[in-house]
Design a protein around this nucleic acid. Structure first.
Lengths: 189, 189
DNA sequence: CGGCTGTTGACAGTTACTGACATCAGATGT
DNA sequence: ACATCTGATGTCAGTAACTGTCAACAGCCG
């Protein structure tokens, strides 16, 4: 290496986030993002499947982490109890990162329907992975799906609270809280 | 009316479903769909915001029906109990339609990631509407969101079972069942 | 009869994305 | 040291999703 600046992916991600935050997603072309990093549009699309994906790099890592944590949850847990392990792992991973960047990213996503769609799709992917693990642990198809999907809803709501600054507590705390609320809401008549 | 064939929207929807089922979503252009109905591509995009929307016409009706049913649920229900009214209304509405068409539509959607994204977005819209109603009924922000989202997950899973033919029971029955499973999965430790 | 309205067509333009091929620094093998 | 291979990039041409603008024209209304 040395022939080109390293970490094209990372530089494109940074440039994209900055431009999206500044002018908005629709008002930013892939060519502009690429130009800002000294690369070409073609390279952009080689590194990211589509323009939206540039905002979701690293999302596979989060998904894998969640699925792994659910898989490693000790036996004897209810489905939702196992999912909570995954949520803890997610909170730990996200808690490492810079909260301001996470907030900026979320503001960009919240401002654009296409990006919101993509985020939902990512969460649905995680949910599918988690549901698969739960099924391996002997949970029935329907319960596995419901527990996994509900867990990802908790993840989304908690992150939104955390990133939007409406709740100053630790992300893990917000999430445990949300799981408790989920139990409460489902327990009632 | 009379100058042109009536119901351009409906004709485009039919043509699109047929072509998508036959060759797949990606292998079908908007111009081809339009041509099959004797219209032009420009008209297609005047009637549908984008190519995917042609498969989701009438989805606002379903959303409104669900939200209305939740709003009209008698007092004294838990949040999830009120959501169940919405699910009943959805089952009733979908039960009216032709199940084979619903199944074909779902097969097309299931076969394409972009279409799955759009479907998730529609469900998220319904959930937002339902959560709003629950909040009006005095349910807390977090519980309202969780109950509404969980309800839409039930809707999705139940429809998938029903449409894919894996479950011969009535859609309403499948859904009540799924709600019960949701309660069971959340009730446990 | 004349003007207004709503639906459509025609046409040009932008941009997301793809495929095919060229380039060239650096690692690798002999 | 030399040839070669590899991997990341650039170049260029093309498709198709959308959008803006203007024209055409049946029906309706005064």
């Amino acid at each position: 290496m040395g022939r080109w600046e390293p970490d094209s992916r990372g530089r494109l991600r940074e440039a994209a986030l900055a431009l999206f935050a500044e002018r908005g997603f629709d008002q930013t072309t892939a060519a502009e993002i690429a130009a800002r990093t000294g690369l070409t549009e073609r390279t952009f699309f080689r590194l990211f499947a589509d323009k939206r994906e540039v905002l979701f790099g690293g999302s596979e890592v989060l998904g894998e982490r969640i699925v792994a944590a659910v898989a490693e949850a000790p036996d004897g847990h209810t489905p939702l109890g196992a999912v909570a392990y995954g949520l803890d792992a997610a909170a730990a991973l996200l808690g490492e990162g810079r909260r301001d960047l996470c907030a900026q990213r979320h503001a960009v996503i919240a401002a654009n329907p296409e990006l919101r769609e993509r985020e939902l799709a990512k969460l649905a992917d995680y949910a599918a992975g988690v549901a698969g693990i739960l099924r391996q642990r002997g949970v029935g198809e329907m319960q596995a799906t419901l527990a996994a999907e509900a867990g990802m809803t908790v993840l989304r709501v908690a992150i939104e609270r955390w990133a939007s600054g409406g709740d100053d507590r630790d992300l893990g705390t917000i999430m445990s809280d949300a799981v408790a609320e989920l139990r409460a809401v489902a327990a009632g008549g």
